[in-house]
Design a protein around this nucleic acid. Structure first.
Lengths: 267, 267
DNA sequence: CGTGTGATTGACGTTCTTCAACATAGGTGG
DNA sequence: CCACCTATGTTGAAGAACGTCAATCACACG
Protein backbone atom coordinates (compact mmCIF):
# COMPACT_ATOMS: atom_id res chain seq x y z
CA UNK A 1 0.00 0.00 0.00
CA UNK A 2 1.63 3.21 -1.22
CA UNK A 3 1.23 6.21 1.00
CA UNK A 4 1.16 9.83 -0.15
CA UNK A 5 4.62 11.30 -0.11
CA UNK A 6 4.10 14.65 1.51
CA UNK A 7 3.89 17.73 -0.63
CA UNK A 8 5.80 18.04 -3.83
CA UNK A 9 5.99 21.43 -5.52
CA UNK A 10 2.54 23.03 -5.64
CA UNK A 11 0.56 19.84 -5.81
CA UNK A 12 -2.92 19.84 -4.39
CA UNK A 13 -2.14 17.80 -1.38
CA UNK A 14 -4.98 16.32 0.50
CA UNK A 15 -5.88 13.36 -1.68
CA UNK A 16 -6.22 10.88 1.11
CA UNK A 17 -5.91 7.16 0.98
CA UNK A 18 -3.95 5.17 -1.52
CA UNK A 19 -2.32 7.86 -3.57
CA UNK A 20 1.09 7.97 -5.12
CA UNK A 21 2.63 11.17 -6.40
CA UNK A 22 5.41 11.41 -8.93
CA UNK A 23 6.94 14.09 -11.11
CA UNK A 24 7.94 13.65 -14.70
CA UNK A 25 11.68 13.10 -14.50
CA UNK A 26 11.59 11.31 -17.79
CA UNK A 27 9.54 8.62 -16.12
CA UNK A 28 6.18 10.21 -16.66
CA UNK A 29 5.34 10.79 -20.30
CA UNK A 30 4.80 14.34 -21.50
CA UNK A 31 1.74 15.45 -23.41
CA UNK A 32 3.49 15.03 -26.75
CA UNK A 33 3.86 11.29 -26.28
CA UNK A 34 0.61 10.69 -24.36
CA UNK A 35 -1.73 8.42 -26.23
CA UNK A 36 -4.56 10.77 -25.35
CA UNK A 37 -2.72 13.60 -27.06
CA UNK A 38 -5.03 16.38 -28.03
CA UNK A 39 -8.13 15.01 -26.36
CA UNK A 40 -7.70 16.37 -22.86
CA UNK A 41 -5.79 19.56 -23.60
CA UNK A 42 -5.19 21.06 -27.02
CA UNK A 43 -1.82 19.68 -27.97
CA UNK A 44 -2.92 19.85 -31.53
CA UNK A 45 -0.65 21.90 -33.70
CA UNK A 46 2.38 24.03 -32.85
CA UNK A 47 4.92 21.80 -31.19
CA UNK A 48 6.10 24.74 -29.15
CA UNK A 49 2.77 25.02 -27.42
CA UNK A 50 2.61 21.34 -26.69
CA UNK A 51 5.88 21.65 -24.85
CA UNK A 52 4.58 24.66 -22.99
CA UNK A 53 1.45 22.80 -22.00
CA UNK A 54 3.51 19.83 -20.95
CA UNK A 55 5.21 21.97 -18.35
CA UNK A 56 1.80 22.49 -16.77
CA UNK A 57 1.24 18.84 -16.17
CA UNK A 58 4.58 17.74 -14.81
CA UNK A 59 2.95 16.17 -11.81
CA UNK A 60 0.98 12.94 -12.04
CA UNK A 61 -0.96 11.05 -9.42
CA UNK A 62 -1.72 7.38 -9.17
CA UNK A 63 -4.76 6.40 -7.17
CA UNK A 64 -5.87 3.01 -6.00
CA UNK A 65 -9.50 2.01 -6.32
CA UNK A 66 -11.56 3.81 -3.71
CA UNK A 67 -9.04 6.61 -3.15
CA UNK A 68 -10.23 10.20 -3.38
CA UNK A 69 -8.65 12.67 -5.75
CA UNK A 70 -10.20 15.39 -3.67
CA UNK A 71 -13.02 15.67 -1.20
CA UNK A 72 -15.94 17.98 -0.74
CA UNK A 73 -14.70 21.11 1.00
CA UNK A 74 -11.10 20.78 -0.16
CA UNK A 75 -9.51 23.95 -1.45
CA UNK A 76 -9.43 24.03 -5.23
CA UNK A 77 -5.98 24.43 -6.71
CA UNK A 78 -5.86 22.17 -9.73
CA UNK A 79 -7.85 20.51 -12.43
CA UNK A 80 -7.12 16.89 -13.17
CA UNK A 81 -6.90 15.24 -16.57
CA UNK A 82 -7.57 11.52 -16.41
CA UNK A 83 -4.83 9.49 -18.07
CA UNK A 84 -6.20 6.09 -17.24
CA UNK A 85 -8.94 4.63 -15.10
CA UNK A 86 -12.21 6.27 -14.07
CA UNK A 87 -13.79 8.36 -11.33
CA UNK A 88 -17.17 9.16 -9.89
CA UNK A 89 -18.23 12.54 -8.53
CA UNK A 90 -20.23 12.20 -5.35
CA UNK A 91 -22.31 15.08 -4.04
CA UNK A 92 -24.18 15.66 -0.83
CA UNK A 93 -27.93 15.95 -1.00
CA UNK A 94 -30.32 16.80 1.80
CA UNK A 95 -30.13 15.11 5.16
CA UNK A 96 -26.65 13.65 4.99
CA UNK A 97 -27.31 11.55 1.95
CA UNK A 98 -24.95 11.26 -0.98
CA UNK A 99 -25.59 11.00 -4.67
CA UNK A 100 -23.40 10.25 -7.67
CA UNK A 101 -23.52 13.22 -10.04
CA UNK A 102 -20.82 12.36 -12.54
CA UNK A 103 -18.78 9.60 -14.14
CA UNK A 104 -15.40 10.46 -15.62
CA UNK A 105 -13.35 8.51 -18.14
CA UNK A 106 -9.87 8.99 -19.61
CA UNK A 107 -9.26 12.41 -21.23
CA UNK A 108 -11.96 13.99 -19.07
CA UNK A 109 -11.07 17.11 -17.15
CA UNK A 110 -12.19 16.80 -13.54
CA UNK A 111 -12.77 19.54 -10.97
CA UNK A 112 -14.40 22.15 -13.20
CA UNK A 113 -17.23 22.62 -10.73
CA UNK A 114 -14.90 24.21 -8.20
CA UNK A 115 -13.62 27.08 -10.33
CA UNK A 116 -16.20 29.59 -9.19
CA UNK A 117 -16.13 28.95 -5.45
CA UNK A 118 -12.54 27.76 -5.24
CA UNK A 119 -13.79 24.90 -3.10
CA UNK A 120 -14.58 21.44 -4.35
CA UNK A 121 -18.27 20.61 -4.23
CA UNK A 122 -17.90 16.85 -4.56
CA UNK A 123 -15.77 13.89 -3.71
CA UNK A 124 -13.92 12.52 -6.72
CA UNK A 125 -13.37 8.82 -6.07
CA UNK A 126 -11.38 6.40 -8.21
CA UNK A 127 -13.51 3.51 -9.48
CA UNK A 128 -10.38 1.50 -10.31
CA UNK A 129 -6.66 2.04 -10.10
CA UNK A 130 -6.21 5.26 -12.01
CA UNK A 131 -3.72 7.85 -13.10
CA UNK A 132 -4.24 11.59 -13.53
CA UNK A 133 -2.27 14.62 -14.66
CA UNK A 134 -2.36 17.52 -12.23
CA UNK A 135 -3.08 20.83 -13.96
CA UNK A 136 -2.48 23.74 -11.55
CA UNK A 137 -5.36 26.06 -12.27
CA UNK A 138 -3.69 29.43 -11.79
CA UNK A 139 -0.83 28.42 -14.04
CA UNK A 140 -3.31 27.18 -16.61
CA UNK A 141 -5.23 30.44 -16.60
CA UNK A 142 -2.03 32.44 -16.83
CA UNK A 143 -0.98 30.42 -19.82
CA UNK A 144 -4.29 30.94 -21.61
CA UNK A 145 -3.42 34.62 -21.92
CA UNK A 146 -0.53 33.69 -24.21
CA UNK A 147 -2.06 30.66 -25.88
CA UNK A 148 -5.51 31.60 -27.16
CA UNK A 149 -6.17 28.03 -28.29
CA UNK A 150 -5.82 26.96 -24.72
CA UNK A 151 -8.28 29.58 -23.59
CA UNK A 152 -10.76 28.50 -26.24
CA UNK A 153 -10.28 24.91 -25.22
CA UNK A 154 -10.86 25.57 -21.55
CA UNK A 155 -14.03 27.51 -22.24
CA UNK A 156 -15.24 24.78 -24.56
CA UNK A 157 -14.55 22.15 -21.91
CA UNK A 158 -16.64 24.03 -19.38
CA UNK A 159 -19.41 24.54 -21.89
CA UNK A 160 -19.37 20.87 -22.79
CA UNK A 161 -19.78 20.00 -19.15
CA UNK A 162 -22.85 22.23 -19.01
CA UNK A 163 -24.34 20.49 -22.01
CA UNK A 164 -23.63 17.13 -20.43
CA UNK A 165 -25.36 18.15 -17.20
CA UNK A 166 -28.31 19.65 -18.99
CA UNK A 167 -28.63 16.41 -20.89
CA UNK A 168 -28.75 14.58 -17.62
CA UNK A 169 -31.42 16.92 -16.32
CA UNK A 170 -33.38 16.42 -19.50
CA UNK A 171 -33.35 12.69 -19.10
CA UNK A 172 -33.58 12.18 -15.38
CA UNK A 173 -36.87 13.93 -15.11
CA UNK A 174 -38.46 12.57 -18.19
CA UNK A 175 -37.61 8.96 -18.74
CA UNK A 176 -38.67 5.59 -17.39
CA UNK A 177 -36.21 3.44 -15.48
CA UNK A 178 -35.63 1.30 -18.54
CA UNK A 179 -34.84 4.33 -20.67
CA UNK A 180 -32.51 5.82 -18.10
CA UNK A 181 -30.45 2.67 -17.87
CA UNK A 182 -30.44 2.26 -21.64
CA UNK A 183 -29.39 5.85 -22.15
CA UNK A 184 -26.66 5.37 -19.59
CA UNK A 185 -25.29 2.28 -21.30
CA UNK A 186 -25.43 3.79 -24.78
CA UNK A 187 -23.73 6.89 -23.46
CA UNK A 188 -20.94 4.84 -21.96
CA UNK A 189 -20.63 2.92 -25.19
CA UNK A 190 -20.29 6.11 -27.21
CA UNK A 191 -17.67 7.50 -24.87
CA UNK A 192 -15.60 4.34 -25.04
CA UNK A 193 -15.80 4.36 -28.79
CA UNK A 194 -14.62 7.94 -28.93
CA UNK A 195 -11.62 6.77 -26.91
CA UNK A 196 -10.86 4.07 -29.45
CA UNK A 197 -12.34 1.09 -27.63
CA UNK A 198 -15.02 -1.18 -28.97
CA UNK A 199 -18.18 0.29 -27.50
CA UNK A 200 -20.04 -3.00 -27.60
CA UNK A 201 -18.02 -4.72 -24.92
CA UNK A 202 -16.72 -2.98 -21.86
CA UNK A 203 -16.66 -3.05 -18.10
CA UNK A 204 -19.09 -1.03 -16.05
CA UNK A 205 -16.93 0.08 -13.17
CA UNK A 206 -19.71 1.51 -11.04
CA UNK A 207 -21.65 -0.72 -8.71
CA UNK A 208 -25.37 -1.15 -9.19
CA UNK A 209 -25.78 1.14 -6.24
CA UNK A 210 -23.69 3.86 -7.87
CA UNK A 211 -25.54 3.51 -11.15
CA UNK A 212 -28.85 3.70 -9.33
CA UNK A 213 -27.75 6.79 -7.48
CA UNK A 214 -26.50 8.38 -10.68
CA UNK A 215 -29.77 7.70 -12.48
CA UNK A 216 -32.05 8.55 -9.60
CA UNK A 217 -33.29 4.99 -9.10
CA UNK A 218 -32.85 2.23 -6.55
CA UNK A 219 -30.35 -0.53 -7.06
CA UNK A 220 -33.13 -3.10 -7.20
CA UNK A 221 -34.75 -1.30 -10.10
CA UNK A 222 -31.43 -1.10 -11.92
CA UNK A 223 -30.90 -4.81 -11.42
CA UNK A 224 -34.36 -5.61 -12.70
CA UNK A 225 -33.85 -3.50 -15.81
CA UNK A 226 -30.54 -5.25 -16.47
CA UNK A 227 -32.15 -8.66 -16.27
CA UNK A 228 -35.06 -7.54 -18.43
CA UNK A 229 -32.72 -6.16 -21.10
CA UNK A 230 -30.80 -9.40 -20.95
CA UNK A 231 -33.94 -11.52 -21.21
CA UNK A 232 -34.89 -9.54 -24.34
CA UNK A 233 -31.50 -10.20 -25.88
CA UNK A 234 -30.36 -6.59 -25.93
CA UNK A 235 -27.40 -6.98 -23.62
CA UNK A 236 -25.34 -9.64 -21.91
CA UNK A 237 -24.34 -8.65 -18.43
CA UNK A 238 -22.71 -10.40 -15.60
CA UNK A 239 -21.56 -8.15 -12.85
CA UNK A 240 -19.13 -5.61 -14.24
CA UNK A 241 -18.75 -7.20 -17.65
CA UNK A 242 -21.12 -5.94 -20.27
CA UNK A 243 -21.86 -6.59 -23.93
CA UNK A 244 -24.33 -4.69 -26.06
CA UNK A 245 -25.71 -7.39 -28.32
CA UNK A 246 -28.37 -5.30 -30.04
CA UNK A 247 -27.50 -1.63 -30.18
CA UNK A 248 -30.34 -0.78 -32.55
CA UNK A 249 -32.79 -2.39 -30.22
CA UNK A 250 -31.44 -0.29 -27.38
CA UNK A 251 -31.81 2.89 -29.40
CA UNK A 252 -35.32 1.77 -30.18
CA UNK A 253 -36.19 1.74 -26.51
CA UNK A 254 -35.28 5.40 -26.25
CA UNK A 255 -37.27 6.59 -29.22
CA UNK A 256 -40.21 4.37 -28.34
CA UNK A 257 -43.67 5.72 -27.72
CA UNK A 258 -43.10 4.79 -24.11
CA UNK A 259 -41.95 8.31 -23.19
CA UNK A 260 -43.62 9.42 -20.06
CA UNK A 261 -45.31 12.61 -20.62
CA UNK A 262 -44.40 15.34 -18.35
CA UNK A 263 -42.92 16.28 -21.70
CA UNK A 264 -44.77 18.40 -24.19
CA UNK A 265 -44.93 17.54 -27.86
CA UNK A 266 -42.66 19.83 -29.84
CA UNK A 267 -44.29 22.77 -31.57
CA UNK B 1 -46.52 44.77 -32.21
CA UNK B 2 -42.91 45.72 -32.89
CA UNK B 3 -41.18 43.78 -35.60
CA UNK B 4 -37.49 42.97 -35.71
CA UNK B 5 -35.61 45.67 -37.57
CA UNK B 6 -33.30 43.68 -39.77
CA UNK B 7 -29.71 43.26 -38.77
CA UNK B 8 -27.85 45.96 -36.93
CA UNK B 9 -24.09 45.66 -36.66
CA UNK B 10 -23.07 42.11 -35.69
CA UNK B 11 -26.20 41.30 -33.76
CA UNK B 12 -27.26 37.69 -33.65
CA UNK B 13 -30.21 38.05 -35.89
CA UNK B 14 -32.72 35.28 -35.92
CA UNK B 15 -34.65 36.06 -32.74
CA UNK B 16 -38.04 35.58 -34.20
CA UNK B 17 -41.33 37.00 -33.06
CA UNK B 18 -41.79 40.13 -31.07
CA UNK B 19 -38.29 41.47 -30.80
CA UNK B 20 -37.07 45.02 -30.88
CA UNK B 21 -33.42 45.87 -31.38
CA UNK B 22 -31.80 49.12 -30.39
CA UNK B 23 -28.28 50.40 -29.99
CA UNK B 24 -27.10 52.56 -27.14
CA UNK B 25 -27.14 56.03 -28.67
CA UNK B 26 -27.46 57.51 -25.24
CA UNK B 27 -30.84 55.88 -24.99
CA UNK B 28 -29.68 52.55 -23.69
CA UNK B 29 -27.81 52.78 -20.40
CA UNK B 30 -24.20 51.63 -20.27
CA UNK B 31 -22.90 49.17 -17.74
CA UNK B 32 -21.69 51.93 -15.45
CA UNK B 33 -25.21 53.17 -14.82
CA UNK B 34 -26.99 49.83 -14.98
CA UNK B 35 -28.66 48.92 -11.72
CA UNK B 36 -27.28 45.43 -12.09
CA UNK B 37 -23.76 46.83 -12.23
CA UNK B 38 -21.19 44.22 -11.37
CA UNK B 39 -23.57 41.30 -11.14
CA UNK B 40 -23.65 40.18 -14.74
CA UNK B 41 -20.21 41.24 -15.88
CA UNK B 42 -17.39 42.43 -13.63
CA UNK B 43 -17.77 46.17 -13.71
CA UNK B 44 -16.30 46.21 -10.27
CA UNK B 45 -13.25 48.36 -10.01
CA UNK B 46 -11.24 50.22 -12.62
CA UNK B 47 -13.52 52.67 -14.36
CA UNK B 48 -11.52 52.25 -17.50
CA UNK B 49 -12.45 48.61 -17.73
CA UNK B 50 -16.10 49.29 -17.15
CA UNK B 51 -16.07 51.58 -20.13
CA UNK B 52 -14.29 48.95 -22.15
CA UNK B 53 -16.83 46.34 -21.17
CA UNK B 54 -19.64 48.72 -21.95
CA UNK B 55 -18.48 48.82 -25.54
CA UNK B 56 -19.17 45.11 -25.70
CA UNK B 57 -22.79 45.46 -24.83
CA UNK B 58 -23.82 48.35 -27.00
CA UNK B 59 -26.70 46.40 -28.45
CA UNK B 60 -29.81 45.64 -26.44
CA UNK B 61 -32.86 43.62 -27.32
CA UNK B 62 -36.41 43.89 -26.08
CA UNK B 63 -38.53 40.79 -26.28
CA UNK B 64 -42.26 40.39 -25.78
CA UNK B 65 -43.55 37.50 -23.76
CA UNK B 66 -43.25 34.29 -25.75
CA UNK B 67 -40.59 35.60 -28.12
CA UNK B 68 -37.42 33.56 -28.57
CA UNK B 69 -33.99 35.04 -27.94
CA UNK B 70 -32.60 32.18 -29.97
CA UNK B 71 -33.75 28.78 -31.03
CA UNK B 72 -32.26 25.34 -31.02
CA UNK B 73 -29.94 25.00 -33.97
CA UNK B 74 -29.24 28.71 -34.32
CA UNK B 75 -25.62 29.65 -34.84
CA UNK B 76 -24.03 30.87 -31.64
CA UNK B 77 -22.57 34.35 -31.86
CA UNK B 78 -23.39 36.07 -28.60
CA UNK B 79 -24.11 35.59 -24.96
CA UNK B 80 -26.98 37.53 -23.47
CA UNK B 81 -27.10 39.27 -20.12
CA UNK B 82 -30.61 39.68 -18.82
CA UNK B 83 -31.40 43.27 -17.83
CA UNK B 84 -35.01 42.72 -16.94
CA UNK B 85 -37.59 39.99 -17.23
CA UNK B 86 -36.98 36.27 -17.34
CA UNK B 87 -36.44 33.39 -19.73
CA UNK B 88 -36.78 29.65 -19.87
CA UNK B 89 -34.43 27.27 -21.68
CA UNK B 90 -36.29 24.57 -23.51
CA UNK B 91 -34.53 21.45 -24.72
CA UNK B 92 -35.56 18.58 -26.91
CA UNK B 93 -35.78 15.14 -25.35
CA UNK B 94 -36.50 11.88 -27.09
CA UNK B 95 -39.32 11.47 -29.53
CA UNK B 96 -40.08 15.09 -30.29
CA UNK B 97 -40.86 16.08 -26.77
CA UNK B 98 -39.59 19.21 -25.09
CA UNK B 99 -38.44 19.84 -21.57
CA UNK B 100 -37.61 22.99 -19.62
CA UNK B 101 -33.99 22.76 -18.48
CA UNK B 102 -33.38 26.24 -17.13
CA UNK B 103 -34.92 29.39 -15.70
CA UNK B 104 -33.06 32.66 -16.04
CA UNK B 105 -33.50 35.87 -14.08
CA UNK B 106 -31.95 39.35 -14.35
CA UNK B 107 -28.13 39.43 -14.28
CA UNK B 108 -27.97 35.86 -15.56
CA UNK B 109 -25.78 35.15 -18.56
CA UNK B 110 -27.66 33.09 -21.12
CA UNK B 111 -26.29 30.97 -23.95
CA UNK B 112 -23.29 29.43 -22.20
CA UNK B 113 -24.27 25.96 -23.34
CA UNK B 114 -23.49 26.83 -26.96
CA UNK B 115 -19.84 27.83 -26.54
CA UNK B 116 -18.42 24.40 -27.28
CA UNK B 117 -20.47 23.46 -30.32
CA UNK B 118 -21.12 27.00 -31.56
CA UNK B 119 -24.73 26.01 -32.01
CA UNK B 120 -27.49 26.69 -29.52
CA UNK B 121 -28.83 23.57 -27.88
CA UNK B 122 -32.05 25.09 -26.57
CA UNK B 123 -34.77 27.59 -27.23
CA UNK B 124 -34.52 30.61 -24.96
CA UNK B 125 -38.05 31.95 -24.57
CA UNK B 126 -39.09 35.14 -22.75
CA UNK B 127 -41.51 34.43 -19.90
CA UNK B 128 -42.53 38.08 -19.79
CA UNK B 129 -41.58 41.25 -21.63
CA UNK B 130 -37.84 41.34 -21.18
CA UNK B 131 -34.68 43.18 -22.06
CA UNK B 132 -31.21 41.76 -22.64
CA UNK B 133 -27.73 43.04 -23.42
CA UNK B 134 -26.09 41.36 -26.37
CA UNK B 135 -22.50 40.31 -25.65
CA UNK B 136 -20.74 39.25 -28.87
CA UNK B 137 -18.78 36.20 -27.84
CA UNK B 138 -15.68 36.58 -29.98
CA UNK B 139 -15.26 40.18 -28.86
CA UNK B 140 -15.72 39.09 -25.27
CA UNK B 141 -13.06 36.41 -25.55
CA UNK B 142 -10.69 38.79 -27.25
CA UNK B 143 -11.16 41.27 -24.48
CA UNK B 144 -10.46 38.69 -21.77
CA UNK B 145 -6.88 38.51 -23.01
CA UNK B 146 -6.38 42.10 -21.91
CA UNK B 147 -8.68 42.12 -18.90
CA UNK B 148 -7.83 39.13 -16.71
CA UNK B 149 -10.69 39.92 -14.34
CA UNK B 150 -13.05 39.43 -17.21
CA UNK B 151 -11.48 36.09 -18.03
CA UNK B 152 -11.78 34.99 -14.43
CA UNK B 153 -15.35 36.15 -14.37
CA UNK B 154 -16.31 34.28 -17.49
CA UNK B 155 -14.75 31.06 -16.25
CA UNK B 156 -16.48 31.48 -12.93
CA UNK B 157 -19.81 32.04 -14.64
CA UNK B 158 -19.44 28.81 -16.57
CA UNK B 159 -18.39 26.95 -13.48
CA UNK B 160 -21.33 28.32 -11.56
CA UNK B 161 -23.65 27.05 -14.24
CA UNK B 162 -22.14 23.60 -13.85
CA UNK B 163 -22.74 23.70 -10.12
CA UNK B 164 -26.31 24.82 -10.70
CA UNK B 165 -26.95 21.96 -13.10
CA UNK B 166 -25.32 19.41 -10.85
CA UNK B 167 -27.54 20.66 -8.06
CA UNK B 168 -30.53 20.06 -10.25
CA UNK B 169 -29.32 16.56 -11.04
CA UNK B 170 -28.81 15.92 -7.36
CA UNK B 171 -32.33 16.89 -6.55
CA UNK B 172 -34.30 15.65 -9.50
CA UNK B 173 -33.36 12.07 -8.99
CA UNK B 174 -33.62 11.99 -5.27
CA UNK B 175 -36.55 14.00 -4.00
CA UNK B 176 -40.28 13.60 -3.70
CA UNK B 177 -42.61 15.84 -5.67
CA UNK B 178 -43.25 17.95 -2.58
CA UNK B 179 -39.54 18.45 -2.02
CA UNK B 180 -38.85 19.31 -5.63
CA UNK B 181 -41.49 22.01 -5.67
CA UNK B 182 -40.35 23.31 -2.30
CA UNK B 183 -36.74 23.38 -3.40
CA UNK B 184 -37.79 25.19 -6.54
CA UNK B 185 -39.70 27.85 -4.64
CA UNK B 186 -36.97 28.40 -2.07
CA UNK B 187 -34.42 28.61 -4.86
CA UNK B 188 -36.47 31.25 -6.61
CA UNK B 189 -36.86 33.11 -3.36
CA UNK B 190 -33.12 33.13 -2.74
CA UNK B 191 -32.41 34.36 -6.24
CA UNK B 192 -34.89 37.20 -5.95
CA UNK B 193 -33.40 38.20 -2.62
CA UNK B 194 -29.93 38.28 -4.11
CA UNK B 195 -31.34 40.68 -6.68
CA UNK B 196 -32.65 42.94 -3.95
CA UNK B 197 -36.30 41.90 -3.99
CA UNK B 198 -38.25 40.54 -1.08
CA UNK B 199 -37.97 36.80 -1.54
CA UNK B 200 -41.20 36.11 0.33
CA UNK B 201 -43.52 37.58 -2.24
CA UNK B 202 -42.96 37.29 -5.95
CA UNK B 203 -44.52 36.19 -9.19
CA UNK B 204 -43.86 32.76 -10.61
CA UNK B 205 -43.66 33.47 -14.30
CA UNK B 206 -43.61 29.89 -15.47
CA UNK B 207 -46.86 28.05 -16.03
CA UNK B 208 -47.61 24.96 -13.99
CA UNK B 209 -46.77 22.99 -17.09
CA UNK B 210 -43.35 24.61 -17.35
CA UNK B 211 -42.65 24.07 -13.67
CA UNK B 212 -43.70 20.45 -13.99
CA UNK B 213 -41.46 19.98 -16.99
CA UNK B 214 -38.56 21.66 -15.22
CA UNK B 215 -38.95 19.45 -12.15
CA UNK B 216 -39.68 16.24 -14.00
CA UNK B 217 -43.29 15.99 -12.81
CA UNK B 218 -46.74 16.36 -14.32
CA UNK B 219 -48.64 19.59 -14.04
CA UNK B 220 -51.34 17.90 -12.00
CA UNK B 221 -48.81 16.82 -9.41
CA UNK B 222 -47.42 20.33 -9.22
CA UNK B 223 -50.89 21.75 -8.72
CA UNK B 224 -51.62 19.25 -5.99
CA UNK B 225 -48.39 20.07 -4.18
CA UNK B 226 -49.22 23.78 -4.38
CA UNK B 227 -52.64 23.23 -2.84
CA UNK B 228 -51.20 20.95 -0.17
CA UNK B 229 -48.54 23.50 0.77
CA UNK B 230 -51.23 26.14 0.89
CA UNK B 231 -53.52 23.99 3.05
CA UNK B 232 -50.63 23.55 5.49
CA UNK B 233 -50.11 27.30 5.68
CA UNK B 234 -46.65 27.29 4.14
CA UNK B 235 -47.48 29.35 1.08
CA UNK B 236 -50.26 31.44 -0.38
CA UNK B 237 -50.60 30.95 -4.08
CA UNK B 238 -53.08 32.04 -6.62
CA UNK B 239 -51.96 31.56 -10.15
CA UNK B 240 -48.74 33.45 -10.72
CA UNK B 241 -48.77 35.35 -7.44
CA UNK B 242 -46.95 33.66 -4.62
CA UNK B 243 -46.16 34.34 -0.96
CA UNK B 244 -43.98 32.23 1.25
CA UNK B 245 -45.72 32.49 4.59
CA UNK B 246 -43.56 30.01 6.48
CA UNK B 247 -40.05 29.78 5.11
CA UNK B 248 -38.76 27.73 8.02
CA UNK B 249 -41.51 25.23 7.48
CA UNK B 250 -40.52 24.95 3.86
CA UNK B 251 -36.90 24.36 4.74
CA UNK B 252 -38.13 21.74 7.16
CA UNK B 253 -39.74 19.79 4.35
CA UNK B 254 -36.39 19.48 2.62
CA UNK B 255 -34.41 18.30 5.60
CA UNK B 256 -37.18 15.97 6.71
CA UNK B 257 -36.70 12.25 7.12
CA UNK B 258 -38.92 11.95 4.08
CA UNK B 259 -35.94 11.68 1.70
CA UNK B 260 -36.47 8.84 -0.66
CA UNK B 261 -33.57 6.58 -0.50
CA UNK B 262 -31.88 5.95 -3.70
CA UNK B 263 -29.46 8.07 -1.68
CA UNK B 264 -26.82 6.53 0.53
CA UNK B 265 -26.13 7.76 4.04
CA UNK B 266 -22.93 9.79 4.09
CA UNK B 267 -19.82 8.02 5.25
C1' DC C 1 -12.44 -21.25 4.57
C1' DG C 2 -15.16 -17.93 6.48
C1' DT C 3 -16.87 -13.19 6.19
C1' DG C 4 -18.66 -9.25 3.82
C1' DT C 5 -20.00 -6.64 -0.02
C1' DG C 6 -22.47 -6.60 -4.12
C1' DA C 7 -26.20 -8.63 -6.89
C1' DT C 8 -30.57 -10.90 -7.65
C1' DT C 9 -35.38 -12.01 -7.05
C1' DG C 10 -40.05 -11.81 -4.94
C1' DA C 11 -44.17 -9.73 -2.50
C1' DC C 12 -46.16 -5.62 -1.16
C1' DG C 13 -47.11 -0.59 -0.57
C1' DT C 14 -46.85 4.19 -1.97
C1' DT C 15 -46.21 7.85 -4.95
C1' DC C 16 -46.93 9.69 -8.97
C1' DT C 17 -48.94 9.42 -13.54
C1' DT C 18 -52.94 8.94 -16.40
C1' DC C 19 -57.45 10.04 -17.86
C1' DA C 20 -61.23 12.92 -17.43
C1' DA C 21 -64.26 16.51 -15.98
C1' DC C 22 -64.67 21.05 -14.53
C1' DA C 23 -63.28 25.99 -13.16
C1' DT C 24 -61.02 30.28 -13.94
C1' DA C 25 -58.34 33.94 -16.34
C1' DG C 26 -57.26 36.77 -20.18
C1' DG C 27 -57.77 38.18 -24.68
C1' DT C 28 -60.59 39.03 -28.98
C1' DG C 29 -64.25 40.52 -31.66
C1' DG C 30 -68.73 41.87 -31.86
C1' DC D 1 -68.98 46.17 -22.22
C1' DC D 2 -70.27 41.69 -22.79
C1' DA D 3 -69.97 37.03 -24.85
C1' DC D 4 -67.12 33.96 -26.28
C1' DC D 5 -62.96 31.14 -26.55
C1' DT D 6 -58.77 29.27 -25.62
C1' DA D 7 -55.03 28.55 -22.43
C1' DT D 8 -54.29 27.53 -17.89
C1' DG D 9 -55.31 25.77 -13.51
C1' DT D 10 -57.87 22.65 -10.21
C1' DT D 11 -59.80 18.40 -8.50
C1' DG D 12 -61.14 13.39 -8.45
C1' DA D 13 -60.66 8.34 -9.28
C1' DA D 14 -58.02 4.36 -11.07
C1' DG D 15 -53.90 2.18 -12.39
C1' DA D 16 -48.84 1.61 -13.27
C1' DA D 17 -44.22 2.23 -12.17
C1' DC D 18 -41.10 2.34 -8.91
C1' DG D 19 -39.68 2.15 -3.98
C1' DT D 20 -39.47 -0.64 0.22
C1' DC D 21 -38.63 -4.72 2.90
C1' DA D 22 -36.69 -9.10 3.09
C1' DA D 23 -34.55 -13.44 1.83
C1' DT D 24 -31.07 -15.66 -0.93
C1' DC D 25 -27.08 -16.08 -3.85
C1' DA D 26 -22.46 -15.27 -5.77
C1' DC D 27 -18.17 -13.55 -5.75
C1' DA D 28 -13.90 -11.33 -3.75
C1' DC D 29 -10.83 -10.85 -0.16
C1' DG D 30 -8.35 -11.60 3.70
Amino acid sequence: MVMPQAALQNVTPPAIGFVSVFASAGLAPSCSTCYLRGTCLPSGSPAEQVIQISTLTRTKLRLRRGAALYRRGDAFKSLYAIRSGSFKSVGLGRAEHTKVVGLHLPADLVGLEAISSRIHEYDAVALEDSEVCVVPYDDLVRMTLNVPELQAYLLAALSREIVRDDGLVLHLGAMTAEQRVTKFLLGLSARYERLGYTGTRFDVRMTRKDIASYLGLTLETVTRVFTRLQRDGLIEAQFKELRLTNVNGLHGLLAAAKTRSNMSPAA
